[in-house]
Amino acid sequence: MAHLTSMLGIWNSNPTRHTAAEDLQGLIAGSMIAALGLYLLAKVGLLTGGMAGLAFVLHYWSGLSFGLLFFVLNLPFYILSLRRVGLDFTLKTFAAVGFTSFLVEIESRFLVIESIAPVWAAVLGGLLLGFGLLALYRHRASLGGLGILAVYVQDRFGIRAGLVQLAFDLVVMATAFAVVSPQVVAYSVLGAVVLNLFLAINHRSDRYIALR
Rank of each mutant, 00 (worst) to 15 (best):
I201K: 11
R83P: 09
L80I: 14
Y152V: 09
V164S: 00
H18C: 09
A141W: 02
Q154R: 01
G130K: 00
L69F: 04
G144I: 03
V172Y: 00
L69R: 00
S81F: 08
T175W: 12
H139D: 02
L149Q: 04
Y60F: 15
L73W: 03
D23E: 15
P76A: 06
Y78V: 12
L58T: 10
L27G: 00
A161E: 00
E22V: 08
R140S: 08
G158Y: 00
A34N: 05
L58Y: 06
G30I: 03
L149T: 10
L134H: 02
W120S: 13
G53R: 01
Y208S: 11
G145V: 11
S65R: 04
L91T: 04
A141F: 06
V119H: 04
S205H: 12
D206T: 13
A52H: 02
L75H: 07
L8F: 15
G162L: 04
R138F: 09
W61K: 13
S108V: 12
L73N: 05
H59G: 05
E105A: 14
I106Y: 10
M7Y: 13
H59V: 10
A122V: 12
G63I: 13
G191Q: 02
L73T: 05
S101D: 08
F56W: 03
I159G: 00
V123D: 10
I106K: 08
A20Q: 13
V85Y: 02
V97W: 03
A210H: 11
T48C: 12
A150K: 00
F94Y: 15
A176F: 05
F177W: 15
